[in-house]
């Protein structure tokens, strides 16, 4: 173990926010699930008891008779807001006294930084550059992420779980979102920070970042494995593979979604189903391509004169 190397990465002032982010995301995810499970237990209790369903105030916290439903913003909310502002300011000042914002040498176009990394919050996209061409990783994928996030409220037809933590009432929504956020975004930020070293090569945490390390990666395009060459054939083959992925993936999603999320399936119209299905299959395309690269050394699955996937 090269502890110095690990310490240098972890203690770099610009990486400290990433450590804080990882800790906070972990903590708040657990905190949310703790409340979700408590709500789920209450829901199960109430589902089983027709009398309680009508009389219970349907919240986990004990509610005393005589308490007002609503409280004044001043002082009960503003007090908290002012306190939060003071605490955040205090943390920020202590943080700013202890850690200096990084400043490297003056910009020098003739001296490339190695590794040269995007700001940490974009490292997920930079990591995708390993597996996809820039037009996907840097332009199309972020575009789909933004659009995909924005359509969520219009395709999530589940009337349950509106305004309180729950897991059991919206399993599919929560699994999908957390997979996208925790694995495809936060984990890739972690990998980009702690594991990608010079040459954007994979260095396990605690190994020395050897700038002279050479890795022989003989990546092949998928059509080469099948012995196909020459352009019209390669393009048609790739189109068939990608089209086949979407056809099979969407068919499989359709069957599974109908079986395991039948309530949602019945409530959704055809446009909503198509959007959820295609976005889900596209999202899964990311890990599929990652596995294809890491396990089978496949570079492109679809090669055309204009673009490669």
């Amino acid at each position: 173990m090269d502890w110095i190397q690990l310490w240098q990465i972890a203690s770099a002032p610009d990486n400290v926010p990433i450590l804080i982010m990882l800790a906070l995301v972990g903590f708040y995810t657990c905190y949310a699930f703790k409340q979700a499970f408590a709500n789920d237990r209450l829901a199960a209790e109430l589902e089983a008891d027709p009398v309680m369903q009508k009389t219970h105030h349907r919240k986990r916290f004990p509610f005393q008779k005589g308490w007002a439903e609503r409280v004044h913003v001043w002082p009960y909310l503003l007090k908290i807001e002012f306190l939060a502002a003071i605490i955040v300011t205090a943390i920020l000042i202590v943080w700013s006294i202890t850690l200096d914002a990084p400043l490297e040498e003056p910009a020098n176009p003739s001296l490339t930084m190695n590794p040269s990394k995007a700001p940490w919050y974009f490292l997920g996209l930079q990591e995708m550059l390993v597996y996809f061409d820039p037009w996907i990783a840097g332009v199309v994928a972020p575009g789909i992420i933004v659009v995909g996030l924005m359509v969520i409220p219009y395709v999530d037809v589940n009337p349950l779980g509106n305004g309180y933590y729950t897991y059991k009432q919206r399993k599919f929504a929560i699994w999908t979102f957390l997979f996208g956020f925790l694995i495809l975004w936060v984990l890739l930020v972690f990998i980009g920070t702690f594991i990608r070293g010079p040459g954007w090569q994979w260095f396990w945490p605690g190994t020395f970042w050897d700038h002279h390390r050479v890795v022989h990666e003989t990546n092949r395009n998928l059509h080469e494995i099948f012995g196909i060459s020459g352009q019209p054939a390669e393009g048609i083959f790739g189109a068939a593979v990608v089209g086949g992925y979407f056809a099979l993936g969407m068919a499989a999603f359709h069957v599974l979604f109908k079986k395991f999320a039948n309530n949602a399936y019945r409530a959704m119209n055809i446009v909503q189903l198509l959007i959820v299905n295609s976005l889900f299959v596209m999202m899964m395309g990311m890990p599929v391509k990652i596995i294809a690269r890491l396990a089978f050394r496949i570079k492109y699955v679809w090669v055309t004169p204009w673009f490669n996937i």
Partner: peptide
Amino acid sequence: SGPAPIKLEH
């Protein structure tokens, strides 16, 4: 938004 009273499948 809340915390809202929980809804039931019922």
